[in-house]
Design a protein around this nucleic acid. Structure first.
Lengths: 239, 239
DNA sequence: GGCATGCTTCGGCCGGGGCCGAAGCATCCG
DNA sequence: CGGATGCTTCGGCCCCGGCCGAAGCATGCC
């Protein structure tokens, strides 16, 4: 009877996620792109009118944000907090690091590079994190990371403004367990900024129909020279 | 239609949490202690037989673990992953750092020191984190922390074995946003070890009926001399 | 043994909510 | 302007699952 109050609202949020159609909608939005109601209906596997109801409830609870544009409505996750909660639920759902089921993206392109909410994932992202760590630009601890002075300089040269202004308090550098690689990659403001900048530079391009990222030749060269990707980073992990 | 598979199991987990009674049960277990089915029924606000059904489902899904002892059954959260997922959901439920509603534990004792799953929370825990950080024993980044060499030595002297053996891969040092203080305190293996050791030393004692921790005079002296609590740490935060 | 306590299983009630078809607005196009 | 497209609202169906009372096992105590 002690803390029923907080339990209540927790239940409301969890209940919203606890429906297959809505969970599919939210999972689709974990890709980081804004999607239209119709696309989400397709992902959810239910009719548009049903989806519309779900989206209204999700928006009401501020789990997603909506943006009108012409006769489309674009939906996206409302905040990184929501993405993190979904991530945590996926971790629990996967049964912890228990079953080493070789699921994860089976598509080779997805394994190589993809988006994860607002940052990069896949072998490329893991290799980037490894390279930055090996060169002492970041220090990765459990769940988060610290950008060193040399790293700050490097990233500034690369063109990402770390901008420590305590705006919004979105964590600067977080690590995120890569589904396919089972090793950490970079998330947080830093991870998001890296993806933004890489897209700007044309080093990676979004696939139109999936979360995959295509690495351009320029990106291949650029990432290697800028961040020192370890040799053979494209290969499957030893384990 | 792409990733419906993972969405499915995410939905199952979230659905389990998405019931008021079950959410209350899990919230109660966030205290870190194992509780009997009867106590949980009380927390949930439903009859024992209803609670029994809920607990069976939670155990089936491995969100909680059960341990028979005489004619009692003690339940606890199954893993730190579950605690983290609940924490993330609470964060979303609280509406992010949006509404600064002065909720949080209203009881003064709870504000001062309490348990949070398996580690300490409240002003004491925040002050401990501050002290360790101020003296360069840990470096706190967003969501995690790094124990320095001096910190490692200090903690070893204090009697906690950090034991880097990659056993279980439970993160060593994490930070956790304190509900009442809105500032980070220490969690992870380190946070759990600190609570254990403090209980062993008799520096804090568990209250019988709540998550509150009572700080003993020895603890007051001990924490101050060992970790350098900032002066006036008992006072309400400036904000 | 007899009885209390703690927990579970069974059966039945009933309300919430997920689903779709049909129809209603909005927007863009020619 | 009329028609196509995208999305929403409305109405009604139906089933899932949360709830409790009663009864059934276990355990412990006298």
């Amino acid at each position: 009877m002690s803390n029923m109050v907080s339990g209540n609202t927790v239940a409301e949020v969890a209940r919203l996620i606890g429906d297959v159609a809505r969970a599919n909608i939210l999972s689709a939005l974990m890709g980081g792109q804004a999607l239209t109601a119709g696309e989400l209906a397709h992902h959810a596997g239910v009719t548009p009118q049903t989806t519309s109801g779900h989206l209204a409830r999700l928006a009401e609870a501020e789990l997603v944000k909506v943006e009108k544009q012409g006769r489309h409505r674009y939906y996206r996750l409302a905040s990184a907090d929501v993405a993190q909660a979904l991530h945590a639920l996926m971790t629990v759902a996967a049964g912890g690091p228990k079953r080493h089921r070789p699921i994860g993206p089976r598509d080779a392109a997805l394994r190589l590079a993809r988006t994860c909410y607002d940052h990069m994932a896949g072998r490329l992202a893991v290799a980037l994190a490894d390279g930055l760590r090996a060169n002492g630009h970041v220090i990765l601890t459990d769940g988060a990371g610290l950008v060193t002075d040399t790293g700050r300089r490097l990233l500034c040269d690369f063109g990402v403004a770390l901008d420590d202004g305590a705006k919004g308090r979105r964590p600067l550098c977080r690590t995120c367990l890569d589904w396919s690689e089972r090793r950490p990659h970079l998330a947080g403001r830093l991870g998001a900024a890296l993806l933004d900048r890489a897209l700007d530079l044309g080093w990676v391009h979004r696939a139109t129909d999936s979360r995959a990222l295509r690495l351009s030749p320029a990106g291949e060269r650029g990432f290697s020279s800028a961040f020192g990707l370890p040799p053979g980073w494209r290969d499957a992990p030893a384990a």
